Amino acid sequence: MKTLLFLAKGFETMEFSGFVDVLGWARHDFGHDVQVETCGFQKEVISTFHIPVIVDKLINEINVDDYDALAIPGGFEEFGFYEEVYDERFLELIRAFDSKKKFIATVCVAALPLGKSGVLKGRNATTYHLGGGRRQKQLAEFGVNVINEPIVIDKNIITSYCPETAAGVAFSLLELLTSKESMEIVKHAMGF
Rank of each mutant, 00 (worst) to 15 (best):
S117I: 14
Q35D: 06
D21Q: 14
G40T: 09
P52C: 15
A96V: 03
M14R: 14
P73E: 02
V186P: 11
T48H: 14
Y67K: 09
F142R: 01
E184K: 15
F41I: 15
I151C: 03
G131W: 00
K2H: 03
V186G: 07
R123L: 09
G143L: 05
G115N: 11
T126L: 00
P113K: 10
P73C: 03
E12I: 06
E149T: 01
N124L: 06
E77F: 00
H28V: 10
Y128D: 08
G133S: 09
S47H: 09
M1G: 08
E175S: 08
P73M: 06
Y161S: 06
F30G: 10
R95E: 09
E92I: 02
E175C: 08
L5Q: 02
K9W: 11
P113V: 14
G74Y: 07
P163I: 04
I147D: 01
S172Y: 00
K57R: 13
A69T: 02
V34K: 00
R134N: 14
A170N: 02
S17V: 05
Q136D: 12
L58M: 14
E61G: 05
V152S: 02
A105H: 07
F19V: 14
C108R: 03
E15M: 06
K102C: 00
M190L: 13
P150K: 03
C162D: 11
Y82M: 15
V119F: 08
F41C: 07
D68H: 10
V169G: 01
I54D: 15
V146Q: 05
D87A: 05
V22R: 12
N148G: 00
L4P: 02
G143W: 12
F97P: 00
G191N: 11
R89D: 14
V152D: 05
T13F: 12
R135C: 15
E149V: 03
R27S: 14
F97A: 02
Y128E: 03
L120H: 05
V186D: 04
F6T: 12
V107A: 01
L5N: 02
C108Q: 03
Q138V: 15
I153H: 00
